[in-house]
């Protein structure tokens, strides 16, 4: 048994004009919540697309549960589920129909039961037979995540799961993610919100200018930069300050 759900080494990816990933390395342990933190355009979605076999890297390797994403995409897809940056739900179908559809594509038995259980768990039972186009943003996102849970995949990718949600919706999603991890699922999520990574993640990696510039638990990151300031009261640096400090140093070096 190996303990790594994800292993990424020297990952590089360019689009026609930009070199987005310039050698990305990280590992994610099974059963933990891993947050990939980066600003808009940092390359988070690009990494998720490579890991979920939607996009080929230029060089470097990535393995999911020991399967190489480039050479064994079918094995990779057996154990993962993706909730993309933009809601991957069918607006014209009802919530229930969406879930049943995914359950059938995963060749489960009792698709109706699977759908009902998830509807109940995500508080969508009342809206189950309404078209998704009538759902609020938060409901859509919940359905989206529910669809990713059909068939109980071992590893779930959530690309900016709370972007565009109101605070209430965000808290709902956080709760869901925590429950998932408690159930043993590995969660890989990306976020632009430092607070979100602080709230949820066991392990945080910061992606900046094509590389992982920091990687570790929140406590480890806090130890790195900057030391607690001694004033009248001692104040722990927030992740935001850590982030800014790291980026600031890089910028100084570059000049």
């Amino acid at each position: 048994m190996q303990n790594q759900a994800i292993q990424v080494k020297g990952l590089q990816k360019s689009y026609t004009k930009i070199h987005v990933l310039k050698g990305v390395d990280f590992e994610v342990e099974k059963g933990c919540i891993f947050a990939l933190l980066g600003s808009n355009g940092a390359g988070k979605t690009t990494i998720i697309k490579i890991l979920t076999t939607l996009l080929k890297q230029d060089s470097g390797t990535a393995t999911i549960n020991g399967f190489d994403v480039a050479t064994k995409p079918d094995d990779v897809r057996q154990s993962i589920s993706l909730t993309g940056q933009f809601a991957a739900v069918d607006e014209i179908l009802t919530g229930r129909e969406n879930l049943v559809m995914i359950a059938r594509l995963r060749h489960l038995k009792n698709t109706r039961q699977v759908a009902d259980n998830l509807l109940d768990r995500f508080g969508l039972t009342e809206a189950a037979d309404r078209r998704v186009s009538t759902y609020s943003g938060g409901m859509r996102r919940r359905l989206d995540i529910a669809m990713s849970l059909v068939g109980k995949p071992q590893l779930i990718f959530l690309d900016e799961p709370t972007t565009g949600l109101d605070p209430e919706g965000r808290i709902e999603v956080w709760k869901t993610v925590k429950e998932l991890a408690n159930g043993g699922t590995t969660v890989f999520l990306t976020t632009q919100y430092l607070e979100e990574a602080e709230q949820l993640a066991d392990q945080i990696a910061i992606l900046h200018e094509g590389k992982i510039i920091a990687n570790g638990t929140l406590a480890e990151l806090k130890k790195l930069f900057p030391p607690a300031k001694v004033e009248y009261v001692e104040k722990q640096p927030t992740l935001e300050e850590i982030f800014l400090a790291i980026i600031g140093k890089k910028a100084e070096k570059a000049q």
């Binding site: 939607l54 079918d74 897809r77 589920s81 993706l82 991957a88 995914i102 594509l105 990713s148």
Partner: peptide, 10 residues
């Protein structure tokens, strides 16, 4: 996004 969902499924 639904297209990417299908494509990341087995």
């Amino acid at each position: 996004g639904i297209f990417e969902r299908f494509h990341s499924m087995p």
